[in-house]
Amino acid sequence: MKILAAICVLAVGVSAQVGPSGIISPDGVNTQFSHDFASNIVLVGPSGIVTNTGDNRQLTAGEAELHVATQPVPMPVSFYVQKGSIGPSGIVSPTGANVQFTQAEADNTVLVGPSGIVREDGNNVQLNAEHHYARSKRDLVGSSGMILKDGTPVQFKSAGVKVLLDAPSGVVLTDGSLYQRRNKRDLVGPSGMILEDGTQIQFKSADVGVLLDGPSGVVLTDGSLYQRRNKRDLVGPSGMILKDGTQIQFKSADVGVLLDGPSGVVLTDGSLYQRRNKRDLVGPSGMILEDGTQIQFKSADVGVLLDGPSGVVLTDGSLYQRRSKRSLVGPSGMILDNGTQVQFTEAGTFILLEGPSGYVLSDGQLFQKSA
C-alpha cells in the first residue's frame, strides 16, 4: 500500500501540464506540438523538453510553475504510452482533441489519476484507456445477469456467479458456463429469415428450413435459392446511384439501364457513365492521393508530371511515394491490412515481430496474414 501511494504521488508530481502532444495552460492559451516535434521528443523534464534532433524546448517560468504538487522529476515520453496528459486544468490528447476544464470544474477537482478524476461534489469522472470521457461499447454486468456488447442477454444460474474470463470470442463464468460472442449473422425464424445483408426471405411453407448456407447464397430445404447481395446500384424512376456513389439524373422519364458492366453503365438513351475507382484528387494548390496522403504544391503552376503505381512526380521535380495498405494499431487492438480485427487480451500489448506471413504479439499470440 505504501509503494502504491508513493507511485500515485510521483505520478501527480510529474509535469502534469506538459504532455507528448502539447502544453496546456490554466489561462486557456495552450501550445500544440507539431507532428514532427512530438515524434522527436526523448525526455520531458521540469524545465524543458529534449528531442533527438537537438531542437529542444525551454519552458518559461510560467510554464514551469504549472507543475502539480511535488517537485517534478524528468520522465521519458514512453511514460505517457500515447495516452495524453491530464492536469488540473484540462486534458491534452495525442490526437489534438484536447479538453479544457471550466473554472468551476477545476475548483471542484480533488485528485487526478490515470483512470479518472475525483470531484469534491462526488460526481467523479471515469476515463478510458485513451484518457477520453467517451466510453466504448462494452458488456453490462449486474447481480443476476449480463448483456454482452453484441446484445446477447445472459442469465446467471445462481446469485454468486461472476465473470471468470472475458475474451474477444466469448465469456466464461465462475460456474463454468461459456457464452460465445456473435458476429453479424442471418436471423432465422419459423416463417422466414433475414440475411446478414438485410435481404428478407419468406418461407413458402411451415416446414421449410436452411439446407445449405454458403458465402454467396442460401439453399432452403424446398429447393429455393437466395443469392447474397454485394453493394449494388440503386435505380429509381428519375435516376440512379451507382455503388461507388456516383449520382445519375435521367434526361427523360422513359430512360432505363441498357447495359450494366464492371467499368460503366449504358442507358437506353445512349448515355454512358463510367464507374470510378478510388483515385487521386487534384486541385489548384495541392492534391490528395488515393491512400489519403496530402500534398501541398509549392507554387501555383505546379502539376502532375508522372503518376505511377508507386508514386507521383510533380512538374517541379518533387516526388511523393504512395503508401501501401498497412495494419492499424491502437491501444486495445489492431486491424490487419487484410481487414482482420484483433482484440488485445491485455493492456500494453504491442507487435513484437512482423513478418511476411504473420504477426507475433508481445503476449505470445500469433496472427496469420491472408494471402
Rank of each mutant, 00 (worst) to 15 (best):
V73D: 03
V73S: 11
V73Q: 11
V73G: 09
P74W: 07
M75V: 14
P76I: 06
P76C: 04
P76N: 12
P76R: 05
V77M: 12
S78Q: 13
F79G: 07
Y80P: 05
Y80E: 07
Y80S: 06
Y80R: 01
V81D: 14
V81F: 04
V81R: 14
V81H: 11
V81T: 10
Q82I: 02
Q82F: 10
Q82P: 02
K83H: 13
G84W: 11
S85Y: 00
S85F: 02
G87A: 05
G87Y: 04
G87S: 13
G87L: 00
G87Q: 01
P88L: 15
P88C: 04
P88G: 08
P88R: 15
S89I: 04
S89K: 03
S89M: 04
G90F: 06
G90L: 09
G90Y: 07
G90V: 03
I91V: 13
I91E: 01
I91F: 10
V92W: 02
V92T: 15
S93M: 11
P94S: 08
P94Y: 09
T95D: 15
G96I: 05
G96R: 11
G96N: 09
N98A: 09
N98T: 10
V99C: 00
V99I: 12
V99L: 08
Q100R: 15
Q100F: 07
Q100V: 08
Q100T: 13
F101G: 09
F101K: 09
T102Q: 09
T102K: 11
A104Q: 10
A104Y: 02
E105T: 02
A106C: 01
A106I: 01
D107M: 07
N108M: 07
N108Q: 10
T109V: 12
T109C: 06
V110W: 05
V110M: 09
V110P: 00
V110G: 01
V110K: 10
L111H: 00
L111Q: 01
L111I: 04
V112S: 09
V112Y: 08
